[in-house]
Amino acid sequence: MVKIDLLVNGKKHSLEVEEDMRLIDLLREKLGLTGVKEGCSEGECGACTVIMDGEVVNSCLVMAFQAHESNIITIEGLDGEGSLHPLQQAFIDAGAVQCGYCTPGMILSAKALLDKNPNPTEEEIREGISGNLCRCTGYNKIVEAINRAKGV
């Protein structure tokens, strides 16, 4: 067991975790943040994307102990009191959500992109979500949603 302290969606947590626990298990199993999805467990699909200290990471490839003293944002930490994040609203409005399994990871990758580059070109948007697979939408509406959200 290892003791770790971390900030998740603005809340402090001190936890004991097993050495072989992954960050995704910590978030889903210990903290109940099931908006973090698991599609491949090997860094291919991006469904498990979370933001760690401002950078997108695949939480299936990060060990829980590596998150010690880090600041994590999951999809659950995006909407404020009763209001959606502009990206969440844009995903709804643009029809960028189908089965929804890629959606949390997509939105977080988009957020990390917009946080660094508030006015990305279409190419930069596509580059920004290139680590996230979507099997349903064909990506166009996702790109459109991010484009809509960038000004807001």
Partner: peptide
Amino acid sequence: ILRVDALSKVTGKALY
């Protein structure tokens, strides 16, 4: 038409 399940999916609340 907006999908009825879109809100739960963009907030991560949709349960699989």
